[in-house]
Design a protein around this nucleic acid. Structure first.
Lengths: 193, 193
DNA sequence: CGAAAATTTGACATGACTCAACTGGAGTGG
DNA sequence: CCACTCCAGTTGAGTCATGTCAAATTTTCG
């Protein structure tokens, strides 16, 4: 059950087997049903969450009720609301399970204890956040420089497996366009092939 | 000359005076003129850069020649191209000085040596990147949910000092709209006051 | 002062949105 | 197995925000 997380650690740092042991004791497994909330707007995000199986979507609800998808999550990804987790402020995010989902989660206290007991882990998370930051900047860059159709092409090229599992509706809200616009843009895309 | 950086460290971690000493030996001061490049597209980003004085702009050049501003930098901010710095790949960013600018910079080797000699620094950078990531996600959220005029208002509210130092042209390229649109949007904004 | 850059303004084009209707499949209950 | 509902997806018509191109005006700075 910890293999996936362990393998993920080892991509970035090397751990002794005692350190592995310590890490593994800090996480708790949890299962969610399809359509169940992992986090709901207004709650404080109390966990960093690693997905073992399933698929999630993190989104905000805009003033006119539109949903704006900030992040999807699949097997081997970390999700949560980093701001809320560290600040203790209520989150403005909803995290929803698009499929039945299994996760490993760690609380803030355990997280800090883990940093103390296994300082290398601080490096792991630094690298992780660094990669997430780079990805976020790339997304901003795409938003600035490319029209909707090219962002769509980029999306399905970068995450080919997601196209199967996530509705176009939700991809549209990730790209920042309406489902209608995405539909039109896709049919134009077909014609050009 | 190191006071500003030192103060910045202390916001997030506490350092002994020996540790401070070590930190300070790792950085090199550098001065740039207005309009001088700190980093140019195609170069590898070899430094993490802390701004002591002045003002910078990081931007990419799109396929049609438009400039897309990803980040501004002011006194007390870190700039650079994190991706290029860590991967060693050529950068797609240009970093330009909008004013005469003084910085402290640290090379990748020195950066890693610093992590070894002063492990607490890893925590400092983790917190730093974490904050940058949260800011990037907020920017994505604004891009998804707000029209240009509100993004402009948010920008000048969050960075009131920048309005004085940065041309509207460049703010427009940060917001992802044309200078003409920003001009119109601003004159509407005036009327409503 | 004079050249170059930034800003503003106008006219028009276009991409994306809204509202609304329609289609087709998935699931549900009779 | 059929009738029904629900939801995602598609399509059409009209509107609005923003882009493009061009020109006028103002500001900056050598």
């Amino acid at each position: 059950m910890f293999e996936l997380l362990n393998a993920h650690f080892k991509k970035h740092i090397s751990l002794s087997s005692e350190e592995e042991e310590i890490c593994m004791t800090m996480f708790r497994q949890k299962k969610y049903r399809k359509h169940q909330y992992i986090l709901q707007e207004g709650e404080v995000c109390r966990y960093e969450i690693f997905i073992l199986k399933g698929c999630t979507r993190s989104y905000e609800i805009g003033p006119n009720g539109q949903e704006h998808t900030l992040q999807f999550g699949l097997e081997g990804w970390w999700i949560g609301d980093l701001y809320s987790f560290f600040s203790g402020e209520p989150s403005s995010l909803n995290i929803d399970c698009l499929e039945a989902t299994e996760v490993l989660q760690i609380s803030k206290n355990d997280h800090e204890e883990l940093y103390r007991k296994v300082p290398k882990i601080e490096r792991y998370f630094r690298i992780l956040i660094q990669n997430a930051y780079v990805a976020a900047m790339n997304r901003i860059s795409s938003n600035l420089s490319m029209p909707a159709i090219e962002r769509y092409r980029e999306f399905i090229e970068r995450y080919p497996d997601m196209e199967q599992r996530i509705s176009n509706n939700q991809i549209a809200s990730y790209l920042g366009i309406t489902p209608q616009s995405l539909s039109r843009v896709r049919s134009q895309n077909q014609k050009k092939k």
